[in-house]
Computed example of a mutant assay.
Amino acid sequence: MQAAFAFAAADVAGWRERLGPVALPRRRRSPVGQLVKSIISARTRDAVSAAAYDRLVAGYGGPAALSRTAPTAVARTIGDVTFAQAKAAQLVAALRRIAAADGGFALDHLADRPLGDALAWLEALPGVARKVSASTLNASTLRRPVMIVDTHVLRVLQRLGFVPPAADYRAGSEAVTAAMPGWTGDDFLGFHIALKRLGQAVCRWDAPDCAACPLAPDCPAAARGGSLH
């Protein structure tokens, strides 16, 4: 098992180096701000979800006011994201549960909990699974060392053979996180950004451009012409 982790760590480190440097966000959202942004981001283009988040901030100011708002009103504010009504209901319910449990929205306790406990606490909230919980812990001011895996990142990891074709976001996140115990939160965020960009621009779902991929020499799918199977 230890040897397997060593091979996995060498693979990830090599891929990160070949993908080249990425610029990390200069400013991070608070944990609750990142939670809100992540809940409304699923299956929605980054520019669309970012604009919707900005409208929430402009319209409600903060999570307390948002938690007291009817989901129908929130849905109108974020109306151009996918599944706006469902996301609005989940968002309001999650914020109300946080207020009831914590008496506020700072979520400071997530900085000190064991990583697994912090993820589980978040995943008990409505609308929160591993992608959202990892993003809340890693991409926020908490900077916790956990891998964020979205659709694009998971596709790249599957094609590389790092996770099985049937793996989900949780499996991908846990595999990369376990492989790199010495990485900082910024290391994981940089790898996430690099893999996401690769998946969006090169390792596309419908037409992977394997000839342009810096990871192709290690990729079993590239050897099969880009297919997963």
Rank of each mutant, 00 (worst) to 15 (best):
Trp15Pro: 02
Pro220Met: 06
Met147Leu: 10
Pro165Arg: 10
Gly62Tyr: 00
Gln200Asp: 12
Gly182Arg: 13
Pro164Asp: 11
Pro208Val: 03
Ala70Val: 13
Ser38Tyr: 01
Arg143Lys: 14
Asp108Tyr: 02
Thr82Arg: 15
His152Met: 08
Glu17His: 10
Tyr53Asp: 04
Ser173Ala: 13
Ala42Ile: 14
Asp187Arg: 09
Ala211Ser: 08
Val132Met: 07
Arg155Leu: 09
Trp15Met: 07
Ser38Pro: 06
Val163Cys: 09
Pro114Phe: 12
Gly33Glu: 03
Asp218Cys: 04
Thr184Gly: 15
Asp102Ser: 07
His152Ile: 09
Gly62Gln: 02
Gly103Val: 03
Ala129Gln: 10
Thr77Pro: 04
Leu215Asp: 00
Thr177Ala: 11
Pro25Arg: 04
Gly226Tyr: 02
Phe162Glu: 06
Ile78Asn: 04
Leu157Met: 09
Ala201Asn: 12
Ser41Asp: 10
Ala10Glu: 14
Val22Tyr: 01
Ala111Phe: 08
Thr44Ser: 10
Tyr60Ser: 09
Glu123Ile: 05
Asp80Ala: 11
Asp186Ala: 11
Gly185Trp: 03
Thr141Leu: 09
Ala93Asn: 08
Gln2Phe: 14
Phe188Asn: 05
Lys196Trp: 12
Ala3Leu: 14
Ala179Asn: 09
Gly199Glu: 02
Val32Lys: 01
Arg68Pro: 09
Ser67Gly: 13
Ala93Val: 12
Gly182Phe: 12
Asp108Gln: 05
Gly62Trp: 01
Ala9Tyr: 09
Ala194Glu: 04
Gly190His: 07
Leu91Gln: 08
Arg29Thr: 00
His229Thr: 15
Val92Tyr: 06
Gly20Val: 05
Leu142Asp: 07
Phe191Leu: 15
Ala106His: 02
Asp187Met: 09
Arg27Tyr: 01
Arg43Leu: 11
Gly116Arg: 14
Met1Asp: 14
Val153Trp: 06
His152Asn: 12
Leu115Trp: 08
Ala3Glu: 15
Leu228Lys: 03
Ala212Val: 03
Gly79Leu: 11
Leu189Met: 06
Ala118Tyr: 04
Gln158His: 10
Ala120Ile: 13
Ala129Leu: 08
Arg224Val: 02
Phe105Trp: 08
Gly161Thr: 00
Phe83Ser: 10
